[in-house]
């Protein structure tokens, strides 16, 4: 029992060792890896399309009317691998092997193989791109909470927070936090509301978010073009 308590701070580390070894035991050849990558990409696009249709069903008439005046943008994804990490433990920035040559630009968003938000591109060279993960302390993004509320998602090493939520907005625990890619109606899910910090003296309140993407070993990342 005491030994288990001692191992508690290393829970994630031990889990990752097991993942690492189980990955290495599987014989993955280049050709089959490409096929897997293509299938993953197709699967991801289908799952995004499904989420999009669900979202459109729920949208009210006013929003639909407004969307009719916009040009719908079709999206594509580019599969990339993480090739190195920022050496500091206080920053969550990774280098990915896709750059301008694959059509990657600053500000593009990255998702994992389940379609959950991973981060956004902050700088690009011809062959590489730097991706800021959602738990980087400098990450920020305007997001939706449930159906009504909006706020500013801010990254953090301990937990993700959403700031500047209007006090009049209704938020419940386990509400889904999501955002929409500009000019496209694809909802990208980020996580669920974990804790609500209400202070009636302030104009705004903040919530803590548990991200859906909790895999700290980032193997495959898809960048939305």
């Amino acid at each position: 029992m005491f030994a288990l308590l001692l191992l508690l701070p290393f829970k994630g580390f031990i889990a990752n060792i097991l993942i690492l070894f189980s990955d290495q035991r599987l014989p993955v050849f280049n050709q089959s890896r490409k096929v897997i990558e293509k299938l993953e990409k197709d699967n991801l696009l289908l799952s995004l399309a499904l989420k999009k249709s669900k979202l459109l069903e729920d949208e009210n008439n006013k929003l639909k009317k407004a969307l009719e005046f916009r040009t719908e943008k079709h999206i594509d994804v580019v599969g990339t691998d993480v090739i190195s990490f920022d050496p500091s433990s206080w920053r969550r920035i990774v280098l990915v092997n896709a750059g301008k040559n694959k059509g990657i630009r600053n500000g593009m968003y990255a998702i994992d193989d389940n379609g959950y938000l991973v981060g956004k591109i902050i700088s690009v060279t011809n062959d590489y791109g730097r991706l800021m993960l959602i738990d980087d302390p400098e990450f920020s993004l305007p997001v939706f909470i449930g159906n009504d509320a909006m706020g500013m998602l801010q990254g953090g090493l301990d937990s993700l927070r959403i700031l500047y939520i209007d006090n009049s907005d209704k938020i419940n625990l386990n509400d889904i936090v999501w955002f929409k890619i500009p000019l496209a109606s694809y909802p990208i899910y980020i996580g669920r509301v974990m804790k609500i910090n209400e202070n009636k003296e302030n104009l705004f309140f903040e919530v803590k978010v548990r991200p859906f993407n909790s895999n700290s070993i980032l193997n495959k990342i898809f960048i939305i073009k």
Partner: peptide, 12 residues
Amino acid sequence: LTKPFGYSLFTE
């Protein structure tokens, strides 16, 4: 730089 255990090991 390679962080073989991802972000589960908090050390430098």
